[in-house]
Simulated assay, not measured.
Amino acid sequence: MLESLIQLLQGAKHIEVFTGAGVSTLSGIRDFRGTGGFYTAAWHGLSVEDLLSLHVFRDDPSLFYGWAREFLYRLKDFKPSIVHTTLAKMEQNGLIRGVYTQNIDQLHQKGGCKHVWEIHGSPESHTCLSCKAKSSYDDVVGDVMANKVPLCKTCGGVLKPDIVFYGEQLEGKLLDRAYRDMASADVIMILGSSLTVQPAASLPMATYYHGGKIVIVNSQETPLDKYAKVRLYDLQETFAVLNSWLDQRNPGI
């Protein structure tokens, strides 16, 4: 199947990439819905859905920040994996146009990708719930790691990371762009996503409905497996092969 994947990529003119939490497990970040993932265990009696819900955050933001310290405010501790760096090589080589990701860990950018669209937002900035002033990730990380709720320097209000919580809408313009890009793609590579969080999980079907091919590399089954032209399970093995193929194809990249 790896040979089939390479043949598919070689013959495509427009390849899009859609990634989920599974691509970051190789960097040491726990998956969300996989075995041992964030969603499989409660935190202080609360589910992750509760911790990431807007109304719970407004009621007691310390719950979210206490939970999020484990990974969201330790991002400097995590390094890009072979998936992130190989996708950057593919972008440099003109094989892919960029990456649409459900992830909020910024590892695609660290890995070298220049065009990354974060469907679920980014912790790079935080917004005051009171006056809407912005603060950067670096401005708040010290307080979070010191077990404090970060507050706005302008008005003292609570700062919320600019990631999409349950109860918030995804950015409409970004979703429209993603749909158009995937609808025009010859191939969509779905990597490390369980494809269960809507509406983002439905976007790759735009490729299929418009005659393109679906590639899925994920350790767990997904709702779109039956539509996949190539279905693989091991990201590490797949991207080791793709990285070697790229090196042979373009020794200077």
Rank of each mutant, 00 (worst) to 15 (best):
A133E: 15
I163D: 02
I96D: 10
M145L: 15
T154L: 13
R177P: 00
N147H: 14
A146F: 01
Q102D: 09
P161T: 02
L175S: 10
S130L: 14
T154D: 13
E168K: 13
V116S: 00
I163A: 08
G192N: 04
G167E: 03
V116Y: 01
D181H: 13
G157W: 01
E118V: 02
C131R: 03
N147S: 13
N147E: 14
C113S: 15
Q106Y: 10
R180T: 09
A200T: 04
V144L: 03
D176W: 04
K114A: 15
E168H: 13
S193I: 02
S130A: 15
Y137V: 06
V99S: 06
A185M: 08
G121R: 12
K132T: 01
C113R: 05
G112T: 00
D143G: 00
R97Y: 04
L95K: 14
G112V: 00
H108S: 11
L203M: 15
D105L: 10
Y100G: 02
V116N: 01
D186A: 12
W117T: 03
S136L: 13
E168P: 11
C128V: 06
S184L: 12
V149P: 07
D162T: 02
P123S: 02
R97K: 15
S130F: 08
H120I: 01
L175G: 09
D186M: 12
K173M: 05
K114T: 14
I96Y: 11
S136R: 13
Y166N: 10
G156H: 09
K114G: 15
V164Q: 11
P161F: 07
L203F: 13
Y166K: 11
D139L: 06
L195Q: 04
R97A: 15
G98N: 12
K160L: 05
D139M: 06
S193G: 04
C113I: 06
I119C: 03
S135M: 05
W117P: 00
I104W: 02
G157D: 08
S194K: 12
K148G: 00
L175D: 10
E118D: 12
L203S: 07
P204D: 11
G142H: 08
C131H: 05
L151G: 04
D186G: 12
T127R: 14
H115K: 10
Q109T: 14
S125F: 11
R177S: 12
P161K: 09
L151W: 01
Q106T: 12
H120R: 05
I96P: 10
L203D: 04
G156P: 04
L203E: 07
C152D: 11
H108G: 09
A200L: 04
K153T: 11
M182A: 14
L175E: 09
E168A: 13
D186P: 12
P123Y: 11
N103W: 07
K132Q: 09
A133Q: 15
V197E: 09
Q102V: 09
G167M: 11
L174Y: 05
V197F: 06
G192H: 09
K173C: 00
Q169G: 02
E118W: 01
S130N: 14
R97L: 11
